[in-house]
Design a binder for these strands. Structure first.
Length: 592
RNA sequence: GGUGCGUUAGUUCAGUUGGUUAGAAUGCCUGCCUGUCACGCAGGAGGUCGCUGGUUCGAGUCCUGUACGCACCGCCA
């Protein structure tokens, strides 16, 4: 019994049965009097046989076929005389009786194979061909499967899916908005939502209790492998819940997804790590817990020696890299170059090798006694054969971020960032505010509607930078996959937040008046969370970039190279919108 | 806004110290081949070395600028 595609319907065909298959020509093999055609559709490949001795005209017709021709073939399912164990349909073939060329194809610019010869750029330009490839199509199938699982899960928990508008108003806080001119309101612009944040809060005021949406979001910021200008969030909001309720239900969702998609059992209760601990132990608010090498703070230990660099350091920290005492001078120099790269910006790297024979060799032997190094060894929990790497700097936070980059690099070098291993955790107790040097004011770490921790509310007036937020991130394998918070539903507290963030009452009213007003009519306590759907899919699929699970992604410059978008408008279109483009600034930059 | 790497045949890449007619694989075309399945064999076509300016007797190779691509920093409430 073999699965085939017949007249658009899946069915099971038996040997000897007549079938009609339609699809694309993967390749042909001409053997003189015989021609074999590998016919591909969404479900796989079936070998078609044309035989000169059975039907010479038909065989001649088949010899015209080229790669990616679309054909319909009627024939008989037959058992193969020589089977091919490498392909799922390898023990049958279809002996062709009729061949109908539905569409011809010019030679594709790259091979439609699992291991294509096409580069990323070319694949994106011809994405419709790229999507024919198994590996890419499978990512789309996984995305579909996960969307179904998520919808069904949230539906079973009484979440109501509501679509919120794509054309909304601009909010200067946070990321840059994409804007859309309004023809009927000359000189005015819509903005595309960075997230449906305020709208879902209004749905809570509306009494919808539990909302979700698989929502397109838009941010006009620079791109990365894990950042697209338009992306998809699993956007959720709940009323009458506290933080534990939210975390419980969404780690249930995560547990369900990992089990159904990957067969992986996440722990019954996910670890919760405070932001402060995450920064102290891993130098990151999204630590990769697939491996150890936790930071050890070494201020007391290292300041004993005579190494001048450490005298003025505000932070000295080390990681213990297991089994790497045999690193060569060249490898250590490369690590030093790595931390000195401009993106990382460390001044230098101190290493201590604890050799297998019990001796120690370090870059700071001149300044420390063997006893000092022994004390360091104990402090680091290092064993013979381990390598200790130490960074220092006069800015504790920056140095921790540098040490984080080094830790991840060592994790990569030792192959510890295994794509089939999943370590998920919650980061909690984020600071409510961050100081912005650029704007010379406090900025909301999460967003301006985030509820402070109740214990810290008195600090709002005295030490706002110390106030913790009831905000949480879902982190998997060092990637921020989701985040959310309890929201402020009290008008007075919200006004205070706006004031601390430097909003005048007039500006707050102009931008968020609709929300403040709504809260005057009985707002339930509410909280929510959003998962980055693209990131979640790419983690499950083991992809390096979220582009690979997006049907038609944008490139690094935010361009769709297939559609050649964005593009200039016809003069008439601009006119209708009362718009003029002024490219003089670009030309001036070009002259310089 | 910044840093790094890259740009050579349809495609993926190699190209030594600057030196004759720029190579390989694959794809494509032609012919042969009745059990192939990455079929095989023989032959063939295919290049403005991203663009620009410079150094040089001579530039794919060195230098300036620029465009594009990728990764990253800044940015992403």
């Amino acid at each position: 019994m073999y699965r085939t595609k017949t007249n658009g319907e899946l069915r099971i065909a038996n040997v000897g049965e007549a079938v009609t298959l339609a699809g694309w020509v993967q390749r042909t093999r001409k053997m003189g009097g015989m021609t074999f055609v590998d016919l591909r559709d969404r479900y796989g490949i079936t070998q078609i046989v044309f035989n000169n001795e059975i039907d010479a005209d038909l065989c001649e017709h088949a010899n015209r076929l080229g790669r990616e021709f679309v054909v319909q073939i009627t024939g008989t399912v037959a058992e193969r005389s020589s089977k091919n164990s490498k392909m799922p349909t390898g023990d049958i073939e279809v002996i062709a009786k009729e061949l109908n060329i539905l569409s011809e194809s010019i030679t594709p610019p790259f091979t439609i194979e699992d291991n294509t010869d096409g580069g990323d750029d070319l694949r994106m330009k011809y994405r419709y061909l790229d999507l024919r490839r198994n590996s890419v199509r499978r990512n789309m199938e996984l995305r579909h499967q996960m969307a179904i699982l998520i919808r069904n899960f949230l539906d079973s928990k009484d979440f109501l899916e509501v679509e919120t508008p794509i054309l909304i108003g601009s909010t200067p806080e946070g990321a840059r908005d994409f804007v859309v001119p309004s023809r009927m309101n000359p000189g005015q612009f819509y903005a595309l939502p960075q997230s449906p944040q305020t709208l879902k809060q209004l749905l809570m005021v509306a009494g919808f209790d539990r909302y979700f949406q698989i929502a397109k979001c838009f941010r006009d910021e620079d791109l990365r492998a894990d950042r697209q200008p338009e992306f998809t969030q699993i956007d959720c909001e709940m009323s009458f819940v506290d933080q534990d309720d939210v975390l419980a239900i969404f780690e249930d969702l995560a547990r369900h997804l990992f089990k159904e998609v990957r067969g992986v059992d996440l722990p019954a209760k996910l670890q919760q790590m405070t932001w402060h601990d995450a920064m102290r132990r891993f130098g990151s608010d999204k630590p990769d817990l697939r491996f150890g090498m936790e930071f050890v703070e070494l201020m007391d230990t290292m300041k004993k020696g005579k190494f001048g660099v450490f005298d003025t350091a505000a932070y000295i920290g080390g990681i213990c890299v297991p089994g790497c005492a045999n690193y060569t001078r060249k490898q250590l120099d490369q690590l030093t170059d790595f931390v000195k790269k401009p993106q990382i910006g460390a001044k230098g790297l101190v290493y201590v090798k604890y050799n297998k024979d019990g001796t120690a060799k370090s870059s700071i032997d001149k300044f420390y006694t063997p006893e000092d190094l022994q004390e360091l060894k104990e402090k680091m929990g290092a064993k013979d054969g381990d390598l200790v790497l130490i960074l220092s700097g006069d800015n504790a936070n920056k140095t921790r971020i540098q040490l984080c980059a080094l830790r991840l690099e060592m994790g990569d070098q030792l192959g510890l960032r295994d794509k089939d291993k999943f370590e998920c955790l919650w980061i909690v107790d984020f600071p409510l505010f961050e100081w912005s040097d650029e704007e010379q004011r406090l900025m909301a770490t999460h967003h301006p509607f985030t509820m402070p921790c109740p214990d810290d509310i008195p600090l709002l007036d005295t030490h706002p930078e110390q106030v913790r937020a009831q905000a949480y991130d879902f982190v998997c394998n060092g990637i921020e996959v989701g985040g959310g918070s309890l929201r402020i539903h009290d008008t007075k507290l919200q006004e205070k937040m706006f004031k601390l963030l430097g909003f005048t009452p007039e500006r707050a009213e102009a931008q968020f008046g609709f929300l403040i007003n709504a809260f005057k009519y009985g707002a339930p306590p509410h909280a929510g969370l959003a998962f980055g759907f693209d990131r979640l899919v790419s983690i499950m699929a083991g992809l390096d970039s979220i582009r690979d699970c997006i049907a038609f992604p944008k490139n690094n410059s935010g361009r769709d190279v297939m559609l050649d978008a964005p593009s200039v408008l016809e003069p008439g279109q601009l006119d209708e919108l009362f718009l003029k483009t002024d490219l003089t600034r670009i030309n001036e930059d070009a002259k310089k």
